[in-house]
Nucleic acid binder design. Structure first.
Lengths: 340, 340
DNA sequence: GATCGTTCCGTAAACGTTTCCGGTGGTACT
DNA sequence: AGTACCACCGGAAACGTTTACGGAACGATC
C-alpha cells in the first residue's frame, strides 16, 4: 500500500534515489542504499507492477498459451501439470510472472495472441498443446515475439521448442529389452503426424539396427487405450514361434490396452511377453503388473523451456540462432518386463 | 502498438471520448462511438493493461495460489488441471485474467500473499491445495481480500470455499451398491483430518442409516495405493459369511490398491466383492476391471469457484454473507460392481 | 428572453514508477 | 588556480490510460 514517495519521505531522499537504491543501480551510496532498504522493509513497500510495467515498457511476465480443448482430448493432463510446476519454479527463480492465456472463439483471429502479448507487454510466450498449424500460432512464429513450444516443433526468428529426447528414450527402452534377452521386439506407435510418435519410432528403428535385430514389427496406434488393445490383439494372434517376445509401446495408455489384450488372449505379462511403455503416467504404477516405462523429466522440461525462452528474449536473431533443446529421459523398471 | 491517442487523432476526437466510447459509457453519441470503434478496429488498438490497471487501481486479474510441493505429494494433478481449465474458461467469460502465484521460501512471511496481491492489484485469489493452517493463508483470510478455497474449508470476511458434495457423492455410491443387492458394505476412508475424507465417511454413515444397514465396517486409509491394499487385505481375511460383499472406497487410488489385495487373496471383483471408488482418476478407466466410481465435475467446480470469487469481490461483508458452495457429483458405472 | 436541464465532448489531473538531464561538492591532475 | 572528472543525488518528464470538472450547443420551460 505504501508507495515509493512514502519511502522517500521517510529517508529524506528523492523518489529517484529510492528507485535506484532498490533496483540495485550503482550510482547510489551504499549507506544511503542501506537506509532506503531499511525504510522500505519497515513500511512494507512493494513496487506496483502496473506502474513499473507501464514506464519500462515490459512486464517481466511470460504468457502460457494452451488450448484447453486439445488438452482435454489429449488426456495429457498430469504430465502437463507437472511441466507447469517446473515452469513456475524456474520462472520464480528468474523473477518472472506467469499469465495464463487461452484465446478462444470470441477474440479469434490470426493476430489474437500477438495482440494479447502486446497488451500485457509480455517478454515472451510458452506454448503447450497448441496445434502448430493454427494461424494464430503461425503469426507468433513469424513475429519478433519470443516463443518456445513444448513438444511441438516450431521455429521462427525468435521461436524454438523443447521436448524430451524421444528418440533416445525409445532406444533406452529397446536396450533394456535386449539386455533381458529379447531378440524379437515389436513396437506400437502413436499417430506419426505427431513429433513424439515419429521420433519414438525412429528410436525403435535406430536401436533395432544398432542391436542387430533382424525383424521389424510395427503396429500403428493413436496413443489411446483402444488402439493399444487392437494392436496387442493382432500381435497376440501370431503363432508363438513368430511372435515377438517383447513390445515397446510408444505410450503408457496404449501399453495398458495392449496388456489387456494379451490377458484376454491368455498371454501373461511379463512371462509370455514383456512390455515397456513411454510417459510414466500415473496409472503405470497403479496397475498390476506395474508398467516398466520411460519417464520424461517434467521438471527439467519446464526449466529448459523457461531457460530457452529467457535466452530467446534478449538475443539477436541475426547473429546467432538458438536451437531446440532435448532433455533426457529415464528408464523406470517395474514389473512388466520381468528381470526384477 | 497503437495507443489511444492515435485512435483519437484518426477520428478527430479527444482521448477522453475514445476511452468513453470503447468502455461503453453512456455519455457518448452513438454515431461517434461507431466511428471510434471502427478506427480502433482498423488501427488494431488494444488498451495497455498496465496503464489501465495503474489508473483504475485494479487489474481485472485474479491470482491462483497453489503449493506445488503439496500437489506433487498429493498426486492430484489430473483433477486439479481439469479444474484449472474450468477456472480459466469462466474467467475468460468474465473478462478476467489469471496470474499464477506460488510464494516460496525466499519471500516467505505471513503477509507474502497479501503483499503480492496488492502489488498486482488483484481482484481476489483462488486457492488450491494449500494447507489452510499456513500463516500466509491465514493472513489472507483475515484480510479484506476476496478469496475462495478449493476443497479446503476456509472462511473469513471475504473468504469461503467450493467443493464437490462429497457427502452426497458417498451416498450415491452406497445407494448404487444397495440397489445391486449388497447389504454388508464396508468403507475405506481417507485421512480424516481432510475435509473430503471426513465428509465421504459421513455420507457412508448417513446412507447406512437411511438404508437400514446393520453393520458398519470402517477401515482407515490415507488416499494412497498402499493403504488401500492394506485395508483390502484385512477385509479379505474375514470369514466369508461375515465379510462385506461390497466396499465403498473414498479414493480411486486406494480402490485400486484394495482390488490388488483382493486379487492376491483369491477374491475376484466384482463377483466376490464389489468396489466403488471416488474421484474418477484417469487410471480408473485404464484398469480391468474398470472402476465404478464417483466423478467430480471439475469444470463445474472451476466455474463455481470463479463465480463465487466474483460475487465475493463486490459485496458488503457486513450486510450479507456468502457461504460455501457444493457441486454435485456423478456416478460412473463401469465394471467393478457388476450389474452391467 | 432568461433559466434550466440534457447531451455531448475536451482539458487536464491523476495513477506510481523509471530515467534523462542537470547540478553540487569533492578530488585529482595540469 | 583552473580544469576535468567522478560519485551522488534531485527535479521533472515521461509511460498510456481513466475520470472529475467544466463548457458548448440545443431544446424545453416559465
Amino acid at each position: 500500500m505504501a508507495g515509493i514517495r512514502e519511502v522517500a519521505k521517510a529517508c529524506g531522499v528523492s523518489v529517484a534515489t529510492v528507485s535506484r537504491a532498490l533496483n540495485g543501480r550503482p550510482e547510489v551510496n551504499e549507506e544511503t542504499r542501506r537506509q532506503v532498504r531499511l525504510a522500505a522493509e519497515i513500511l512494507g513497500y512493494r513496487p506496483s507492477v502496473s506502474a513499473r510495467a507501464l514506464v519500462r515498457g515490459r512486464s517481466d511476465a511470460v504468457g502460457l498459451l494452451w488450448d484447453s480443448a486439445y488438452e482435454t482430448a489429449g488426456r495429457r493432463h498430469p504430465f502437463l501439470l507437472s511441466v507447469l510446476v517446473g515452469i513456475k519454479q524456474a520462472l520464480d527463480a528468474a523473477g518472472r510472472h506467469l499469465i495464463l492465456l487461452n484465446v478462444e472463439a470470441d477474440r479469434v483471429g490470426p493476430r489474437a495472441y500477438l495482440e494479447t502479448a502486446a497488451q500485457f507487454q509480455l517478454d515472451g510466450v510458452l506454448v503447450m498443446g497448441v496445434d502448430s498449424r493454427r494461424p494464430a500460432l503461425c503469426a507468433v512464429l513469424e513475429s519478433e515475439l519470443a516463443c518456445v513450444g513444448f513438444d511441438v516443433p516450431i521455429s521462427g526468428p525468435r521461436a524454438t521448442y523443447v521436448a524430451s529426447d524421444n528418440r533416445a528414450g525409445a532406444m533406452q527402452a529397446m536396450r533394456h529389452l535386449y539386455g533381458l534377452g529379447h531378440r524379437r521386439i515389436a513396437t506400437i506407435t502413436g499417430p506419426l503426424s505427431m513429433m513424439p510418435a515419429e521420433l519414438r519410432l525412429a528410436g525403435y528403428r535406430d536401436a533395432a539396427e544398432e542391436l542387430g535385430l533382424e525383424h521389424e514389427y510395427v503396429y500403428s496406434g493413436d496413443f489411446f487405450l483402444d488402439s493399444g488393445y487392437t494392436c496387442g490383439a493382432r500381435l497376440a494372434e501370431l503363432p508363438p514361434e513368430q511372435r515377438p517376445t517383447a513390445v515397446f509401446v510408444a505410450g503408457d495408455e496404449m501399453a495398458l490396452g495392449a496388456i489387456h489384450a494379451f490377458a484376454d488372449a491368455g498371454l501373461s505379462v511379463p512371462q509370455d511377453i514383456a512390455v515397456v511403455g513411454f510417459d510414466d503416467i500415473e496409472a503405470a504404477d497403479l496397475v498390476r503388473p506395474a508398467l516398466t516405462t520411460i519417464q520424461q523429466d517434467a521438471h527439467a522440461l519446464g526449466a529448459a523451456a523457461v531457460d530457452t525462452l529467457l535466452r530467446l528474449v534478449d538475443h539477436d536473431p541475426a547473429t546467432h540462432t538458438i536451437g531446440p533443446v532435448l532433455t533426457p529421459t529415464r528408464l523406470i523398471v517395474r514389473q512388466s518386463c520381468g528381470g526384477n
